[in-house]
């Protein structure tokens, strides 16, 4: 159990009509690491992490998360497993009809009892907001916040259930370099505090350098290369090189 990977993806295929996005994709993610998945836009990175949390069903292959084979899992154990996974959406996906507080409380309504919510809800929200440095925004609406603040709130919401695994979909895309760097550093500190395992989709070299322990390159639907950032940077393979120039 100790050495078993937290996420184990084996021979996964996914097509949309004639568009074969993932082709026999396999990878392992180990306890406590920050794994970056690097690939061109439209290469299937979002499809891959959405398969991991089963927002998209893979056509074939196996995906194990925290020891559970997720394909064929019933709704209840699936929800249970999802409560251990935090997901940061590329578009943040903040509920724009709700305040920041209601956004953060939303995941609690299923996974906590009413008594727990009344007793500990507020302190959990405050702790998550403090982690991302935005405790003062608790009663604001998402539309009143800047892009970087929204990203932080979305991260706080992903952390509220203290997940063991955090999946990030392009966390710094669309942010200015300074804010992007702040978010990257925040991700590292969050990972330390919660002792979580992270899968990070990114093509922002600064973000990858700051956060990654290991990088997997998703090219033509396959796990094309799997190495540290430094080693990949030195590679002579033209398909890898074009990302680092």
């Amino acid at each position: 159990m100790e050495n078993e990977p937290i996420i184990e993806v084996r021979q996964v295929n996914k097509s949309f009509g004639k568009n074969h996005v993932l082709r026999d994709f396999s990878m392992d993610v180990n306890q406590g690491e920050n794994l970056v998945i690097l690939g061109k836009s439209g290469s299937g990175k979002s499809v891959l992490i959405k398969c991991i949390i089963r927002l998209i069903d893979a056509d074939s292959g196996s995906i194990k998360v925290l020891g559970n084979e997720i394909n064929g899992l019933d709704q209840e154990p699936l929800d249970d497993l999802r409560s251990k996974i935090g997901f940061l959406f590329q578009s943040n996906a903040l509920y724009d009809s709700m305040t920041v507080r209601q956004n953060l409380e939303f995941p609690l309504r299923i996974h906590w009892t009413k008594e727990e919510r009344l007793k500990n809800g507020y302190s959990a929200v405050m702790e998550a907001l403090t982690d991302v440095g935005l405790a003062h925004t608790i009663d604001m609406m998402p539309s009143e916040l800047s892009g970087g603040m929204r990203k932080r709130i979305a991260l706080a919401r992903a952390l509220i259930l203290r997940p063991k695994v955090i999946l990030y979909d392009e966390p710094t895309t669309g942010l200015d370099p300074v804010t992007g760097r702040e978010i990257s550093e925040l991700m590292v500190s969050v990972q330390k505090k919660y002792n979580a395992t992270s899968v990070i989709i990114s093509h922002d070299m600064n973000c990858i350098r700051i956060t990654s322990n290991r990088v997997i390159m998703l090219i033509e639907g396959r796990n094309y290369a799997d190495d540290t950032f430094e080693n990949l940077k030195k590679s002579n393979d033209p398909k890898i090189k074009e990302f680092f120039t």
Binding site: K50, L55, S91
Partner: peptide
């Protein structure tokens, strides 16, 4: 529609609702 395109519907599903 805007909840769908900004992934809010996916976010609900992920959080167990």
């Amino acid at each position: 529609g805007s909840m769908r395109v900004t992934e809010q519907i996916d976010a609900m599903e992920v959080s167990g609702t």
